[in-house]
């Protein structure tokens, strides 16, 4: 067999600099410039991301109405967390979020892979244009997409029910049916984001050496075998990255729920991020809202750790 080695990630870099041979030496007076160049970015990120993160944790241990000064905040320990898990609507919001994220990832990742394979390997015309069109949905404001899909899902005058009716399938109530509403939201999340993930996966495919396929072909491996034994294992970094991006993007879903369903019908689309915003800005309960925010944050940390372990475990 040939040596199984992927090209380094920087393949195609300009006459590679011998970076490794250069000792990390410090230059006199460079420190001032480092500090000066870093400070605007670090200041903004520190003040508007790190400090608020710490404050979220702090507020989550307090009772504080958003409509009163922060000085009237009172310590309640873990009360907010206790109440969070005693409130069935909020517990359901957590499960809805898990379902939304899980469904989004389960549909998006395989679908993006299939489309990426189609748009990369076979010699067909028009692939470039298709990529651009696929990506276009990513740049449209979510509110516009919400309006479009609200109309596509509309019963009667909407095209989807007309199309389903034409082939004799009774259209579900989509957004007004508690068992379909969340799925409907997943569908247009997938629609909006697919092109972005396809581009990322195609980029990953370009990094797989052609020689592997040549060798596999000599060994008599067919397309399926090649995909299963070469493409998917070697694409793993990109696949994990796409899974991570799907996760991060869908766990913070807010706009379509705020705009289309307000968490309904029957609480079936109430997700954590919507509940965070509603609890704070409509009910003013900043403490409980922050406890929810911390829970969301913990979900991200746990999922990130799991994905990281998957990455490491498979690498060997």
């Amino acid at each position: 067999m040939t040596t199984l080695q992927t090209p380094p990630a920087t393949a195609g870099a300009p006459a590679a600099a011998p970076r490794a041979s250069r000792p990390a030496r410090r230059r006199r007076g460079q420190g001032r410039w480092s500090a000066l160049f870093l400070s605007p970015a670090l200041l903004i990120i520190g003040v508007f991301t790190l400090i608020p993160m710490l404050m979220t944790v702090w507020i989550s241990f307090h009772r504080w109405s958003m409509f009163t000064p922060i000085t009237e905040m009172s310590w309640v320990g873990l009360d907010n967390y206790g109440r969070l898990f005693a409130d069935s609507a909020r517990v359901q919001a957590i499960w809805n979020t898990v379902a939304y994220v899980g469904l989004s990832a389960l549909i998006t990742v395989p679908l993006a892979l299939l489309v990426a394979l189609l748009l990369y390997f076979p010699k067909i015309k028009g692939k470039g244009v298709v990529r651009v069109i696929l990506f276009a949905t990513y740049v449209i404001p979510t509110i516009a997409i919400v309006i479009i899909w609200g109309n596509i899902y509309a019963p009667g005058y909407g095209p989807l029910s007309a199309m389903l009716g034409a082939v004799g399938i009774p259209a579900p109530g989509w957004l007004s049916d508690p068992s379909w509403a969340l799925v409907s939201l997943v569908i247009f999340n997938v629609w909006q984001m697919l092109g972005y993930y396809v581009i990322l996966l195609i980029a990953g495919l370009t990094q797989i050496s052609e020689e592997l396929y040549e060798a596999a072909k000599i060994d008599g491996a067919g397309i399926v075998r090649q995909t299963w034994s070469i493409t998917i294992p070697l694409l793993r970094p990109s696949l994990v990255f796409v899974a991570l991006m799907t996760f991060i993007n869908s766990i913070q879903v807010f706009d379509p729920i705020y705009l289309l369903t307000q968490g309904g019908p029957a609480n079936s689309t109430n997700v954590v991020s919507f509940e965070i915003q509603r609890t704070a800005f409509q009910y003013g309960m900043a403490g409980e809202s922050s406890a929810l925010a911390v829970s969301l944050f913990m979900m991200i940390v746990v999922a990130g750790a799991v994905l990281g372990m998957v990455m490491k475990g498979r690498k060997r």
């Binding site: 404050m55 766990i251 991020s273 965070i276 704070a280």
Partner: peptide, 10 residues
């Protein structure tokens, strides 16, 4: 990886 919604209130 920190969604803005987490820090919205503060």
């Amino acid at each position: 990886f920190l969604p803005p919604i987490v820090t919205l209130v503060p």
